[in-house]
Amino acid sequence: MKYSRREFMGLSIKTMVLLAALDWPSKLLALTKYNWEDYLWGYGIDIDRCIGCGRCVSACKKENNVPDDPFFFRTWIERYVERKDKSGDKIEVDSPNGGKDGFADLSNKKDIVKSFFVPKMCNHCENPPCVQVCPVGATYKTKDGVVLVDQDYCIGCRYCIQACPYGARYLHPEKRVADKCTLCYHRITKGLKPACVDACPVSTRIFGNLKDPNSIINNFLKSKKIQVLKPHLGTNPKIYYSGIDKEVR
């Protein structure tokens, strides 16, 4: 044997102390200046302003290293078209490449009743179904109201992807773990806005602290008529829509 028992025990204790010490800096860095008890993040989307340019989708993909294939999105834009039909009104929904390259104008403009763009993303529910179903505790809601994924702990079982009623999650093709919108948690904890909010050229996307009565999001909630997606499910989303129709799911 190379080590005596005494040496081995001593070495183990030193290693443990060293590991504990190495763990500290990352934690201190993130949570010293930022006190998550002071925040509850809310997000507004004003449909009446959205022009479907897709800059949010593009910015999100760049900021969060989302794969560029047309079926991996943390946020995407849908186009709703309501047409008059003999048997009542008909709804068409499409989202070419998640809206990342904008939308080509509709070729058949006959019988259009109305048409509009709806940006979609994780709804950061107060009562998130994805968190309930995770068998290992790899997805959770933080105290500032953001639903996050622990990508080192996720086993890639896809229960959460099935459970999400908004289709906001996908399995990352390289990491083989669930991935979703984090409201750019690395940005908001440092005083920046999420990348999609910054990139939006027409201020469709609004972001702020619900605990601050004068924040931009609270002004948005007071001044607009607000709806959330699928309210009957009781998920209590914190993505608030203004100007959506009953057809939007």
Binding site: L29, N64, G137, L148, D150, D152, Y185, K190
Partner: peptide, 16 residues
Amino acid sequence: YRGDSIAENANKPIIF
């Protein structure tokens, strides 16, 4: 959940 994972999420690199 793992408490460290919050810091891991918060420490990802900023691009914009």
